[in-house]
């Protein structure tokens, strides 16, 4: 199947099995390894990317459904001021340990703040409930998001 889509703001035209997972397309074909496979069933959130600005689990997205869509991975998002604010917030809070879940959390945070720039603690927890972390116990990540909101005030 021929597919046209935008990846990290560049247009692409590819020939691909429509059932091929977006996750594999990004990792195997484009070498975008910030996108991680942690479960392959939408449970862990390590493969989260933005599709038309919204967080999605790329392991659950068949390539046949990305026609005309804009996909953004961390490789592109890390060039933004919003990323800088999240990076600073997460660093200062001690939100990073093993790091395998981290790109997914960064992308989920962007999606959350994009939709709701001023979430309550409970809304942050809910907004990140599709991301598993086994190292931190989450509270330090929640703190990281709150620090990012302060540091990046006005960006979202």
């Amino acid at each position: 199947m021929k597919i046209e889509f935008y990846l990290n703001n560049d247009p692409h035209e590819i020939e691909v099995d429509p059932a091929y997972r977006l996750l594999d397309l990004l990792r195997e074909d484009f070498g975008l390894t910030s996108v991680k496979e942690g479960c392959g069933e939408g449970e862990c959130g390590a493969c989260i990317v933005l599709m038309n600005g919204l967080a999605v689990n790329s392991c659950l997205v068949p390539c046949g459904s990305i026609l005309g869509k804009h996909i953004i991975t961390l490789e592109e998002f890390r060039k933004t001021d919003r990323y800088e604010a999240i990076e600073k917030g997460f660093m200062d809070a001690g939100a990073v340990q093993c790091g395998f879940c981290t790109p997914g959390f960064v992308m989920a945070t962007e999606s959350l703040l994009n939709q709701n720039p001023d979430p309550t603690d409970e809304e942050i927890r809910e907004g990140l409930s599709g991301n598993l972390c086994r190292c931190t116990g989450y509270n330090l990540i929640i703190k990281g998001v709150k620090l990012a909101m302060e540091k990046g005030a006005g960006l979202w």
Binding site: A19, E37, G40, L60, P62
Partner: peptide, 19 residues
């Protein structure tokens, strides 16, 4: 195939392999 969230998870076969 609509959202794909159930189908893709049900058909998942393993690391880096297509359903």
């Amino acid at each position: 195939m609509a959202g794909g969230t159930d189908l893709m998870a049900q058909k998942a076969r393993g690391f880096a392999i297509r359903p």
